[in-house]
């Protein structure tokens, strides 16, 4: 007779908890659904449409076929992927020693100052930062003028609008996103492991290869994923530093949507970019033997 009371109470409590959990999860669910899933479903549907005449659409794969048939799109796609991978590798190669220095060589105040120095450029918008590079590198820019003044160059030197400049801009823009995870993962490496490596006969190369890099792998993977995705989806830097000839895939998407007002084709390109980044990240995790949960967690 008295037994049902606690049961009801228990049921009520868990009901309250469930409602609370739903409420807490709401922003995430809304965000995922409204800003990620819904647009992508729409993108997919639009990309599978073909415009027959004004206001008339039909299901078709023509937008995808067009991509594979037209070498310009195809080339831009591959070029963007290759350049992004190169930018990621370069950022890692430059960022790793920097992070190691900050995390392992510096102590106390010097450490925070160096870390802050990496952060400071990011207080300025990406647009302004990129214009900074343009001021330095353009034909009438600082470096060109200096070279002429020093007598090294006879006339103005144009250093903008080529692949190397795009690469410089991309690496510069991405550096912080590589350094932050690397510093935190290297910080967590016990100094005595490095010392033990030396004590047992290792040298700088073998200790780095066998102890530091395996320990830093989750940080390397997460840094690389972030940098790669940011680079692949970057629009501003390749466009400003590379000019008309930058041939970045996001520019193709922009052109389809805005210039040509061809939403169907633009959607297909957008979807292909998503497939590309997912595939490369998956492949990268496979060869570095990392899992996504390890990398994020």
């Amino acid at each position: 007779m008295t037994n049902p009371a606690p049961v009801t109470k228990g049921g009520k409590t868990s009901g309250t908890i469930r409602f609370g959990a739903v409420l807490l999860a709401m922003p995430l669910v809304l965000w995922l659904f409204l800003l990620v899933i819904l647009p992508h479903i729409d993108l997919l549907l639009v990309s599978l449409h073909e415009r027959i005449s004004y206001g008339k659409y039909e299901f078709s794969l023509i937008n995808y076929i067009e991509f594979f048939v037209e070498p310009l799109y195809w080339n831009t796609y591959v070029r963007t992927a290759v350049m992004s991978i190169m930018a990621t590798v370069l950022t890692l190669v430059i960022g790793f020693p920097v992070s190691y220095y900050i995390a392992k060589m510096m102590r106390g105040k010097g450490k925070s100052i160096l870390f802050l120095l990496c952060l400071i450029p990011f207080w300025v918008s990406e647009l302004v930062r990129t214009f900074g590079w343009m001021i330095l590198l353009r034909e009438s820019g600082v470096i060109s003028n200096f070279l002429q003044w020093a007598g090294i160059a006879d006339g103005p030197v144009e250093m903008l609008y080529n692949d190397a400049t795009i690469m410089v801009g991309l690496v510069y823009t991405s550096m912080l996103f590589m350094v932050v995870p690397l510093v935190s993962v290297l910080d967590s490496l016990d100094d005595s492991l490095i010392e033990a490596g030396y004590d047992l006969g290792g040298n700088a190369f073998t200790v780095t290869r066998d102890i530091v890099i395996p320990h830093a792998m989750p940080g390397i993977a997460s840094g690389c994923i972030v940098v790669f995705m940011l680079t692949l989806g970057n629009y501003l830097t390749p466009n400003l530093l590379g000019g008309k000839d930058s041939l970045w895939f996001t520019e193709q998407i922009y052109t389809q949507f805005i210039t040509r007002f061809n939403w169907e084709s633009g959607s297909a390109f957008g979807f292909l970019l998503l497939v590309l980044s997912s595939l490369i990240v998956w492949f990268g995790l496979k060869i570095s033997r990392q899992t996504l949960s390890e990398t994020v967690g």
Partner: peptide
Amino acid sequence: VPPNRRPVNMVFQHLALFPMM
């Protein structure tokens, strides 16, 4: 003589076994 060339080895306070191996 650097540590990696000395004929001495050290057992560290927290042992410093390599967790990746």
